[in-house]
Design a protein around this nucleic acid. Structure first.
Length: 925
RNA sequence: GGGCGAGUAGCUCAGUUGGUUAGAGCGCCUGCCUUACACGCAGGAUGUCGGGGGUUCGAGUCCCUCCUCGCCCACCA
């Protein structure tokens, strides 16, 4: 074998940077990531389709560890199924991210001293498009660096003409089905983003606030009788239209129907009774501000109250609709929080502020900019959710769709059971404009799939609704729109819908996952996928979520550059249990990614060993080897390989439910990626490298028939190990696999990436037997090694070990040379050990391994040490026993202490016996 | 306020239907540059499995209770 030349191909040090880019390029050029409709069984092909649609990152996003984790999981699954033989498709794409992108561009404008209104809508949108074209989609290029095997030909974008068409179609269809309506009600309004938000976009945050008690003078009652109201938001009192009490509240019963004067605004408002009021909270009197509180709005509707708006969209005080002059001039234009302070001060001055108490309460914030949202009365478009939720709920309940980890199913069900209508209009400029036109002349409202230029009723001029749709209104269509919907004759839709898995983080279970399921049923009458896998969050060592803005982030590309994509991928997959968070140290990348880097290096070195020893000339096929040619080690490692394939298959589980629905026993199994990674690692490192490879060292160099057997088995084992590992570590496995010698040229496919996934067979009794016998050999080796270590016998010094076998003489006799080789000793079986003074160790089958130590260690010193130890132990044991016989101790000490002392006594007794035996062996008598 | 999850070695976590001596990676200790690998090899230490109670021949695993963290949801002003 001309080893030097081939060795040059595998440098001693693994340099991922030098191989990864080139390999990725070759995969792309070979088209192995591209899925074909006609190969899908659903389109008359012979392959089962396996499809994952990528959660589209924001178009302006830059790759972070969260993306790295999310996409690695998807890639592992896609690569696995590709090797199994499925027509595997991974659809990539990006999201235009309405508010997020608009905020970025507005920030840029602000830096130039401009606002979006300075530019005007058209120019602003132009600018945003230019910005996206320039910087957008970078993240998809970055995904290639971590090895993502997506079908880039199908890259989608939520604002593309194709997907925009789907958005319009969905809107119009839902409108025609009566599921989209225009509503006049209180919604969440972000005064900074200047748009309405859905319930999901305005999450609660606990905050320490204050509860202000304010007295409202009652009209027409003698003296200065008043009603005291408790409120957290005094500034909204200017919008009060009533005070409400509970109808059954005796304290206030006689006041219902009277009225009070609203301080500051000086408006007379009625006292009403409504069930909504909780008599036990605060004073039992609630101020009703219908335009700025969703509950008050309901009360206002019931009592047909006016609904004055007392704030401008930007959160400053203003006399809006129906407000008259409630907001006094000195407060107009003042920010709501500043206005609160001023109003409180003014109330204090006039004696209307009774008291202020601290109050813990939950306030909604904008999920994009964290500004406290303002409930605000306005007109918005809503989707009626209950009818859509029904099939989505049933799908998870009946096992058509499973959610992993299991506990999220309950969260999902709870949300859908209490679903509320979805506000889909946003007062933004970046997004899909709402496809509704209004006629100025006859007031007709036209909802249309195509642009409208004139009123179809009176021919009058029309103007399109100013608002755009919630970003999620395009995302929820992603699984169908990326495959061609609404074109129902789309070959992609037929071949690949429904898809298989959806991999994402729990944060967007409501935003996206549940809505996709609803859209799947609403528009395709079929679920978009059968498995939802919710993975954890990447956090730092303090368990704080990683983020660029907090400065605790890790740039995946840094990791790729330093240790390679495979190291990143392995670390992430192996380190993350089902649904568990992944902790990484951003201050110590080397330590964080050591598991992956070390394992990659290990693989590399196994590869180098193969190259140097097995070489490149064809090996014999393992399938054609006769049983009697195989050594015990060969049979053992082939058995371990088979067992590992089984383990990996169990960890990954079924790729899809058998008959449309998950059976209970398989519903929550599989998708254990960390267990899959661990099984593969254990096999390669602890079995192949630590044991099998060592057994081949004497054999391969010897030449002859056995040498060929060893070459064949080692090659087969490593070949299949690389296949098992490829989905997790695609680059290094591909590199090494390309250099394996195969039995026949045709065994070498073009790429490992499309090489067949190993198929296990049921373990035979012979295999089991071989594995048990080799385990005995390993035990014997371990025994000698331990003795050598215990007595600090230098590695260079040979020892003569003897095995006194009870039941397996033949096994030990046959493999004494191997045991000797692995334990760096000579081994005699059933002979008497030569020399006095010996250490011994008992194996699980009762056999004894005896190592004479004369001449190797200073026996008198060792014996002295051991005798001293034994003496000491006996002394301690004596005093302990004495204590345990002492009635005073037994009578008074707590039972737990007595118990633990008894336990200790038993342990020490056992140790004494062992030590005595050791002394007898080593020192005689 | 409602619901859910977690607490196992210094750290991050596995522990499948309760079953011998509770595991892995990283870290730590000892000895080794043994001709694939010091990003390695060999050997080793470390756990009242959150506390308490219960069921059982047997509990990390099942039940009750308490404590501590975390997550999701929620119109008490």
């Amino acid at each position: 074998m001309s080893t030097t030349q081939e060795l040059r191909e595998l440098p001693t040090q693994y340099e991922p940077g030098q191989i990864e880019r080139a390999i990725y390029q070759r995969w792309v050029e070979a088209g192995i990531f591209a899925a074909e409709e006609k190969r899908s069984r659903r389109n008359g092909g012979d392959r089962e389709p396996f499809v994952i649609v990528m959660p589209p990152p924001n178009v302006t996003a830059v790759l972070h560890m969260g993306h790295g984790l999310n996409n690695t999981v998807q890639d592992v699954l896609v690569r696995w199924r590709r090797m199994v033989g499925d027509e595997a498709l991974w659809v990539p794409g990006t999201d235009h991210a309405g508010i997020a992108t608009q905020n970025i561009v507005e920030k840029q404008l602000a830096a130039e001293g401009k606002s979006r209104s300075d530019l005007g809508r058209e120019a602003f949108v132009e600018r945003t498009i230019a910005f996206v074209e320039e910087t957008g989609g970078e993240i998809l290029r970055q995904l290639r660096a971590i090895g993502a095997s997506a079908d880039w030909n199908r890259t989608a974008y939520t604002l593309s003409p194709e997907l925009s068409r789907a958005v319009r179609e969905a809107f119009v269809q839902l409108y025609e089905r009566g599921l989209i309506y225009r509503g006049h009600r209180v919604i969440h309004w972000c005064p900074r983003c200047l748009t309405s938000l859905s319930d999901e976009e305005a999450p609660h945050g606990e905050e320490a606030g204050k509860l202000y008690h304010i007295s409202y003078p009652i009209v027409g009652v003698k003296d200065d009788a008043s009603l005291t109201v408790a409120t957290t938001r005094p500034e909204t009192m200017l919008g009060d239209v009533a005070l409400a009490v509970h109808p059954g509240d005796e304290r206030y019963k006689k006041l219902v129907g009277k009225s009070v004067i609203l301080p500051i605004a000086n408006v007379e408002i009625p006292i009403i009774a409504d069930e909504y009021v909780d008599p036990a909270f605060g004073t039992g009197v609630v101020k009703i501000t219908p335009a700025h509180d969703p509950n008050d709005f309901e009360v206002g509707m019931r009592h047909k109250l006016p609904m004055p708006v007392i704030m401008a969209p930007d959160g400053t005080m203003a006399n809006g609709t129906d407000a008259g002059s409630r907001v006094p001039p000195q407060l107009v234009g003042v920010d709501r929080f500043e206005a609160r302070e001023r109003i409180v001060k003014s109330l204090e001055k006039s004696g209307r502020l009774i008291k202020v108490e601290p109050h813990q309460h939950a306030i909604r914030h904008c999920y994009r900019c964290d500004t406290v949202v303002e409930p605000r009365l306005s007109d918005q478009w809503f989707v009626k959710m209950e009818p859509l939720a029904k099939p989505a709920l049933a799908a998870v309940r009946d096992g058509t769709i499973r959610i992993l980890p299991e506990r999220w199913e309950a969260v999902y069900v709870n949300w859908l059971e209490n679903i509320r209508d979805w506000n889909i209009s946003r007062q933004l400029w970046w997004g899909h404009r709402i496809p509704v036109w209004y006629c100025d002349k006859c007031d007709k409202q036209i909802v249309s799939r195509t642009d409208v230029t004139a009123c179809d009723k009176c021919g009058g001029a029309v103007r399109q609704d100013e608002d755009v749709l919630d970003t999620w209104f395009s995302s929820w269509l992603f699984p169908i729109s990326t495959l061609g919907w609404p074109d129902k004759s789309s070959a992609a839709l037929a071949a690949f819908y429904p898809t298989d898995d959806l991999i994402t983080a729990p944060e967007i279970l409501f935003f996206w996952v549940s809505r996709m399921i609803m859209a799947g049923y609403a528009f395709m009458d079929a679920p978009p996928f059968h498995t939802v896998y919710l993975h954890g969050t990447v956090r730092d060592t303090d368990h704080v979520k990683m983020s660029k803005s907090l400065g605790n982030g890790i740039d995946p590309l840094d990791v790729v550059e330093k240790y390679g994509a495979d190291a990143l991928r392995y670390t992430v997959i192996a380190g993350m249990g089902m649904g568990a968070d992944l902790m990484l140290d951003h201050r110590d990348l080397e330590r964080s990614f050591a598991p992956g880097r070390n394992f990659a290096t290990k693989l590399w070195n196994i590869g180098r060993f193969l190259l140097a020893n097995v070489g490149l000339s064809p090996v014999r096929s393992v399938d054609e080897l006769r049983d009697d040619e195989l050594t015990l080690a060969d049979r053992w490692i082939l058995g371990r390989l088979n067992a590992t394939i089984l383990e990996v298959d169990v960890a990954l589980g079924s790729a899809r439910p058998e008959k449309g629905k998950w059976r209970p026993e398989e519903r929550y199994s599989g998708m254990r990626l960390s267990e899959y990674a661990e099984a593969a690692r254990r096999f390669i490192w602890n079995d192949v490298a630590d044991w099998y490879l060592e057994t081949t060292k004497g054999r391969i160099g010897a030449g002859g028939g056995d040498s060929e057997v060893a070459r064949a088995v080692l090659t087969r084992v490593f070949d299949h190990a690389l296949r098992l590992l490829h989905p997790i570590m695609p680059f290094i496995t591909e590199t090494l696999w390309q250099r394996l010698p195969f039995a026949v040229a045709t065994d070498r496919g073009e790429f490992l990436a499309i090489a067949p996934w190993p198929i296990p067979h049921p373990l035979s009794a012979e295999e089991r037997d071989a594995m048990a016998r080799f385990d005995l050999v390993r035990e014997a080796v371990g025994a000698v090694r331990q003795i050598r270590s215990d007595y600090a016998i230098p590695p260079g010094k040979s020892v003569d070990a003897a095995i006194q076998s009870r039941a397996n003489s033949a096994v030990f006799a046959q493999h004494s040379a191997l045991i000797g080789q692995l334990a760096r000793s000579t081994v005699k079986v059933d002979g008497s050990p030569s020399g006095a003074g010996a250490a011994h160790s008992v194996l699980s089958d009762g056999s004894e391994v005896i190592v004479p130590l004369e001449g190797l260690v200073d026996l008198s010193r060792e014996c002295g040490k051991l005798r001293g130890e034994l003496e000491q132990l006996e002394k301690q044991l004596q005093s302990l026993s004495k204590r345990l016989q002492n009635e005073g101790f037994i009578g008074r000490a707590p039972a737990t202490v007595i118990e633990s002392e008894r336990k200790k006594e038993a342990e020490w007794t056992k140790r004494r016996e062992q030590l005595a035996e050791k002394v007898k062996m080593l020192c005689g008598g």
